[in-house]
Design a protein around this nucleic acid. Structure first.
Lengths: 119, 119
DNA sequence: ATGTTATCTGAATATATGCTCAAATATACA
DNA sequence: TGTATATTTGAGCATATATTCAGATAACAT
């Protein structure tokens, strides 16, 4: 059992092969960043409530604010974040912007996680 | 079109019916909290790398640290978080603790999100 | 143009979080 | 017992982030 090797890093290392295999099959750096960004978007109660609501109907900013008991500014900030990640889209009707989910991936993710929680 | 109603909250309100329906079908508060906790766990690059590695093989703390180029302390802190959410489990062999994924939900979540990113 | 409404934006603040460091446990073995 | 190794833990710091507030845009009506 090697005490310390410096080939891969300066940490202790017990199972060299596992480490090498794990490194070889690791996520690409840009994939890791993108994945984290999407999960971060889902990692906030306000955004989850917004997404869950939009999964069933399109809604405008002030309706979402009313539903959540938050300012429209707060909701708008969150919608911008979700829009930048293309998780939600909108259509304009006069001064009113109607938001909806871009696709059904988000709903899938929430539903799988709800399943997981019921174990 | 009502200018302002105070029945639901003190915000403006354009589509009363949408707001009421959205409230009626909203996630339960404890569900929202739990969902956010799980997604927070996935919303960090280090934890994503750990989970992705453990999806294919069990690994001990110092191997994960070597793989990631982080201290064992940092990895241990993250593993505790994942353990508390029952996303990972471990088995002890002497002084060494081997970590693995508790079930396949996490891998599902990551794979669906990877799919989403390829659009 | 002017005013009104819906939404957006930037700055500021308060809280959450990831890592490091130092020290504490837990197990194995002499 | 005593020592060594693998892991855990708590405190502290630096960064990220959710909301609020004040003010700026955008579309429409008059």
């Amino acid at each position: 059992m090697p005490k310390k090797t410096n080939d891969l890093c300066d940490c202790r290392l017990i199972h060299r092969k596992s480490v090498e295999e794990a490194r070889a099959s690791a996520l690409a750096p840009n994939e890791t960043v993108s994945l984290a960004q999407i999960f971060k978007a889902l990692a906030d109660e306000t955004r989850l409530k917004i997404l869950w609501a939009l999964e069933k109907r399109e809604m405008c900013v002030c309706d979402l604010a009313a539903m959540l008991g938050l300012t429209e500014s707060a909701v708008s900030h969150q919608l911008r974040l979700l829009r930048n990640l293309q998780l939600v889209s909108n259509r304009r009707n006069g001064v009113v912007l109607y938001y909806r989910l871009t696709d059904n991936h988000v709903a899938q993710l929430i539903n799988i996680t709800l399943e997981h929680l019921r174990d």
